[in-house]
Design a protein around this nucleic acid. Structure first.
Length: 570
DNA sequence: AATACAAGCGCG
DNA sequence: AAAGCGCGCTTGTATT
């Protein structure tokens, strides 16, 4: 430890910005300055490095700091923390926190001015950012934490949630190093030369001709599902839909070229040349991450499709000259989290130091790895039919504690209750519509159709809450991993600037930085001299996240990790 | 002409 | 082999 923890506040004050720095938890004021909006990042940067900055919304304030060429170490994002505290079953929050307020607004979008439409319906509206509102909300949150019996877990959750918000802004600013040349080569190999806009690429046109010939219909429309389905029926393919998994059941010469046609049109429209020009014009892919964007606590994304980057395009993620990528993902994150949070020693044992699914097979629970995977996913998702549903009972016998945890979460959800993750994020309460459906079905005179509807609705909600506890706790583990790693990377010394202006900008052009995060995998872009140190840090952070959440429980989270110049290699 | 929805497919 | 969780995006079609 160096200095005691300090708080800082950044808020709007009329047309100015006010920066307050305080000492300790008692909020004794140390310094207060007013300045023009463009000058506050310099003020904040001159404060002690361990200040925890309280502000309304990280996406509202932090990009300005990054644009000014600096970073901040810690923050308390009032909007995100409000969202957690408002719903958490672990706090006895006052009504002022519980009630829906202006603090429930959507995140600010830095790129886009709010329109009247946005303000009218609340979507895209910003949370308050004036000093009085910010201090009032901060005190409400501190009070709620002071009264909470499980405050330690909640404080951890709020801390990693806020660190994630900093990181989301930083990763957007730094970008994923993206090779336009490799992307273009992949497109040309699959699709042919770049077509003029509005025209199908050459390979797609050739496939379309092959498909139409196989259909015996030279004018068949392939891009309209109803028309395509009718053409297929005329050719004797009596599918119910045009989805891939159904079509591939049929043995007909049209199927193979049609599936290839769908694959290539998808590539061209979702990640083709237009995408490249829009999202990686300068050799950096900058997706907009939305921390806390999913109810379970996972991040969402908006723009660029960061969560859907096809594996096919991963080779285009390429380190700069003299730099390397450290690519790491957790094998079977969610089942491991389930083993730990349920205290299921048998499942934890099956997971230890190896492929968890192989561990289940070795324990004699099911016969093959594929069966183990299907069974476990089915247990966490609530499958009742098919192979998955058939295999779940064997799992229930072998791992009763783990299965009891997800079964209990499902039961609570079916009854309209709230479930909570390991660190204290609670699921939303059942909505009025859902309760109405159950109420109607409970009446003595209810029709059988109403009862069936209510049962289906209850099961649906049960599957959601069943998965919520696992997916949400997995998101917490991942955030803890990221937050710790972010600190480790910041402690590495920067390298000398290269001859060219660094594509990652003044902040990240000289030091290792996180470049990508997707649920259970990360990519760090690092000067090559630090690659080994970064790899070690990635592993240390994962171990610390495990101990931070689950203490001494004997569970491990092994990483698949490689140091590479491009992220495409297996 | 603008908007909402469904299908389909990409990711974990 | 195709059921069960959470997302975002594009396209075509239906609605207004």
């Amino acid at each position: 430890m160096t200095l005691p923890p300090r708080w800082g506040v950044v808020a709007r004050d009329g047309d100015d910005v006010v920066v307050v720095v305080t000492l300790g938890d008692d909020l004794v004021e140390l310094a207060r300055e007013r300045c023009a909006p463009r000058d506050w990042p310099a003020l904040a940067a001159s404060a002690p490095a361990d200040v925890r900055w309280v502000w309304s919304d990280t996406s509202r304030w932090y990009p300005q700091v990054l644009a000014a060429g600096t970073t901040l170490r810690r923050c308390h994002d009032l909007r995100l923390c409000h969202a957690v505290l408002r719903l958490s079953a672990l706090v006895d929050a006052p009504d002022a926190l519980r009630a829906a307020t202006e603090w429930d607004a959507a995140p600010a979008e830095a790129e886009r001015a709010p329109t009247l439409f946005d303000l009218a319906d609340g979507a895209g509206a910003e949370v308050p950012d004036d000093l009085a509102s910010v201090l009032a909300e901060f005190h409400r949150q501190q009070q709620a934490l002071a009264d909470a019996p499980a405050a330690a877990r909640l404080r951890l959750l709020l801390g990693i949630e806020s660190a994630g918000a900093l990181l989301a802004a930083e990763m957007h600013a730094a970008g994923v190093p993206w090779s336009r040349a490799i992307h273009e080569r992949l497109l040309e190999e699959s699709l042919g030369p770049r077509p003029t806009p509005g025209v199908h690429p050459q390979r797609v046109q050739e496939l379309a001709e092959t498909v139409r010939a196989a259909l015996g219909d030279p004018t068949a429309s392939l891009d309209s599902q109803p028309k395509l389905l009718r053409s297929l029926h005329r050719a004797g393919v009596l599918a119910q839909s045009t989805s891939r998994w159904e079509l591939q059941e049929y043995d007909h010469p049209v199927i193979a070229p049609l599936l290839q046609y769908k694959k290539l049109t998808r590539l061209a429209s979702a990640n083709g040349w237009a995408w490249l020009d829009e999202w990686a014009p300068d050799g950096r892919f900058r997706p907009v991450y939305v921390p806390g964007g999913v109810v379970t606590g996972r991040w969402a994304s908006s723009g660029g499709g960061a969560l859907q980057l096809p594996r096919q395009l991963r080779p285009a993620v390429r380190a700069d000259d003299g730099w390397m990528l450290v690519v790491a993902d957790v094998a079977q994150l969610e089942p491991r989290v389930l083993a730990a949070m349920s205290g299921d020693a048998a499942l934890a044992q099956a997971a230890r130091g190896r492929d968890l699914y192989e561990g289940i097979v070795d324990s004699g629970v099911v016969a093959t790895r594929q069966e183990a995977k299907i069974a476990l996913l089915g247990a966490m998702y609530g499958a009742t039919t098919g192979d998955s549903g058939r295999l779940v009972p064997a799992l229930r016998r072998a791992y009763p504690r783990a299965m009891a945890l997800v079964d209990e979460a499902a039961t609570v959800g079916e009854q309209g209750g709230v479930v909570t993750t390991w660190l204290g994020r609670s699921s939303p309460a059942a909505g009025a519509g859902w309760r109405d459906v159950q109420g109607v079905a409970a009446a003595p005179e209810a029709a059988e159709a109403d009862r069936a509807h209510a049962r289906r609705s209850a099961r649906n909600r049960g599957r959601f809450t069943r998965n919520f506890v696992v997916q949400g706790t997995a998101a917490e583990w991942a955030l803890a991993w990221l937050a710790d790693l972010r600190g480790e990377l910041a402690a590495l010394p920067p390298v000398e600037p290269g001859a060219d202006a660094p594509a990652s900008g003044p902040v990240f052009g000289r030091r290792a930085h996180l470049a990508f995060f997707l649920h259970d995998e990360i990519i760090v872009h690092t000067p090559a001299v630090h690659a080994e140190a970064v790899a070690a840090a990635v592993r240390r952070s994962a171990d610390r996240a495990t101990r931070l959440l689950f203490g001494g429980f004997p569970i491990d989270f092994p990483l698949d990790l490689r140091i590479t110049a491009d992220a495409g290699k297996a």
